[in-house]
Amino acid sequence: MNAVRLFAFFFPFALGLCSLAAEARQEPQAVEQTVRAFLQQATAGLPGRVQIEVDPFDPYNQLPPCRQLQAFVPENVRLWGRVAVGVRCTEPTPWTAYLTARVAVFGAYYQSARPLRAGQVLSPDDLRREEGELTALPEDVVLDASRVVGARLRGSLAAGQPLRQSQIVLPDVVSPGMDVVVRATGPGFVVENRGKALNRAAPGETVRVRLEGGRVVSGQAQPDGSVALGP
Rank of each mutant, 00 (worst) to 15 (best):
V83D: 05
L63P: 04
N199E: 06
A22R: 15
L79S: 04
G225D: 05
G16R: 01
V141L: 11
A113G: 01
Q26M: 10
S19F: 15
F57C: 03
V77K: 07
A30S: 13
L153Y: 01
E53T: 15
L198N: 06
L170F: 01
M1W: 14
V181C: 04
E139S: 13
V181I: 13
F9G: 13
F9S: 12
F57M: 02
P138T: 09
T96C: 13
P203I: 05
V103H: 02
T90D: 13
V180N: 02
I168M: 05
A108F: 12
P65R: 04
E91M: 12
V77Y: 06
R147K: 14
T135H: 05
P92I: 08
L15I: 09
L198R: 01
A108V: 13
V50K: 04
E23P: 07
L157G: 06
W80I: 06
Y110T: 03
Q111N: 08
P74Y: 07
T100L: 12
L6N: 10
P74L: 01
G160V: 05
R208K: 14
R152L: 10
R49G: 14
G119C: 08
V207T: 04
V227T: 04
Q62C: 11
R117V: 11
E130I: 15
F10T: 10
R194P: 00
S226P: 00
G186Q: 07
A136H: 12
N193Y: 15
P231E: 07
L39Q: 00
Q41G: 10
R117S: 15
Q222L: 15
